[in-house]
Design a protein around this nucleic acid. Structure first.
Lengths: 214, 214
DNA sequence: CGTGCATGTTACTTGCGGTAACAGCAGTCT
DNA sequence: AGACTGCTGTTACCGCAAGTAACATGCACG
């Protein structure tokens, strides 16, 4: 039958695609995002044109790669945000989940968020792709939805929720990025400091003696 | 005299460098960060090797370019943060200054923060450089210093200030990026919403009826 | 068997970052 | 004056990576 035929072929193609993605993953995690298509093909035991047949171009491959990791991360964040606990605890758990993820797999994080950096040679070849934007945007939108669904913010609440969603995600991202590079404190302290910020400790802080205060 | 000689030469070299930077600026703002060195050289009326003599490599040129814009932006932010007004007003003024800057010159913003995106062709050639990180980091560090100098945060205040500095900058950045793309509200509303977030309205918000609340 | 069709290959083009080698043109030292 | 230095500028090239064309092979179906 024609349909079963098609199905078989598609299944095999999908399997192959997954294998190729895993090979690409290994190379990218080893060599950074500036990994060449040749290198990826070699790791997969094949040659370039096959990659192009499967993914169109390098952007397509990287997008597929990024989507996998992004989806996984978003799943764990959703889980943390849905745990049975009070609001602050869940906020802290979510921050902690994100930070743990980037701490455990900094290479994935760098791939999703950062330019190449990994080149011994004169470098200059940058990279990145539009990976960081999509991930940050998706996280921002999802958080906005959660906020809007569960919090009573009064009139204009929907818009407020979206601003906050993106703002909070950006806060988490930038703080995490800095923390990952400098490791100035433990993860728990970082989580606590960010939650304190969200909880209004900035507004509540007193001015320093002798100055106008911020 | 030898010294005056040297001075003359250096002055002329500096002037040339500035001219080249301005040409590069025009091209980058027109073509996006994936502008080729050839195009930049052509815009400046010269050829590639001269650019390389002045800036070393593409990274050097882009770094010089980024530094100019970064310094200008930081200056205006410092001014807003130092204006004579109360704390919340100054926070709002600073947010507004940043958002106005990226609103008025989105191309500069994209150059500093974003991958190429501007390519008609298959693209795939990304770009960016390590520009976004430096700018965000510098803003974060400067804000941290301001917070630590002017606010009384008790024990552990220095570390808290650094976390907050980077976190707030990240919040501003991500929210601004999203806002610039979607324009869901006026700049003033965005500023107000972010300031509200910083002022603890998230913690103060009531749970929505029927749900566990966030 | 030939006809599709997917998989795989080699060999090529194009374009960019970066460099070597050479050419002209000041002013300087002896 | 004439060799020397140091700058600006050029053409012509290398290396490398993205992406493509054209050809080869294995396998199911009629």
């Amino acid at each position: 039958m024609d349909t079963t035929q098609r199905t078989d072929q598609q299944r095999s193609a999908d399997r192959r695609r997954r294998e190729l993605l895993e090979a690409a993953d290994r190379v990218v995690l080893r060599d950074g995002p500036q990994a060449s298509m040749n290198a990826i093909a070699a790791e997969a035991g094949i040659t370039k044109p096959i990659l192009y047949r499967h993914f169109g171009d390098k952007g397509g491959l990287y997008a597929a790669l990024a989507t996998r990791h992004t989806d996984a991360l978003l799943d764990s964040l959703r889980a943390a945000l849905d745990a049975p606990a009070d609001r602050r605890e869940r906020v802290e758990a979510t921050l902690d989940t994100y930070l743990t993820a980037i701490e455990l797999r900094p290479q994935v994080y760098r791939f999703l968020m950062h330019p190449a950096e990994g080149g011994q040679p004169g470098d200059a070849g940058f990279d990145v792709g539009k990976h960081s934007a999509p991930l940050l945007r998706r996280m921002g939108e999802e958080l906005a939805q959660v906020i809007e669904e569960r919090l009573d913010l009064g009139p204009g609440g929907q818009q407020l929720a979206r601003v906050w969603g993106h703002g909070i995600v950006g806060m988490m991202h930038a703080a995490g990025d800095w923390w990952l590079g400098e490791r100035p404190c433990s993860r728990a302290e970082l989580v606590r400091s960010l939650a304190d910020l969200l909880w209004g400790r900035l507004a509540a802080a007193g001015d320093r003696v002798g100055g106008p205060g911020f």
